[in-house]
Amino acid sequence: MRCQDFQDRLERRWDDFQMRAHTEECPACQERLALVNWSRQVMLAAEQNVTPPAMAAVWAAVRRATNTSWEFSLTRSFRRLAPYLVAVTVLFIVVAAFQPGIVTSRPSRYASALAAGPDTKVASVLDPDLAPQKPGDVLGIGGR
């Protein structure tokens, strides 16, 4: 008997005369037999027995899994799109920041007036109290 045949039979839990004869003349296979027997004992010693869940619990798990798969597919779609949405938003902000004309294309009426300075002539006609004042004449009574 070849060692390979012995090992194959050993893994298949065979036990026959040929195998026993082979172990007597082959120390390597004898060692292998001891190792297999030892590991089987360890596995049996370590074995844990549990009670399987009831069928009703399995059906409940099926229902949960069905609901979860729906929610998951929705959130997965959003998760796939989210980076693109963020990238587009960031790109828009960057482009907008480097083109001020987009934000304020023309100065406003009030900005033009401020740039032109105080039109005191017009103001004095409309309101005599707004006659030219000396610097520091806060109340406008300096010239009276």
Partner: peptide, 26 residues
Amino acid sequence: RMVANFVRYPEVVPDLVQEIFAKVYL
């Protein structure tokens, strides 16, 4: 038996077995 001895957390075995069979069903 396979789940219990592979995972070795007895408290989670029933949940795992339920989930496995639910997955198989789906």
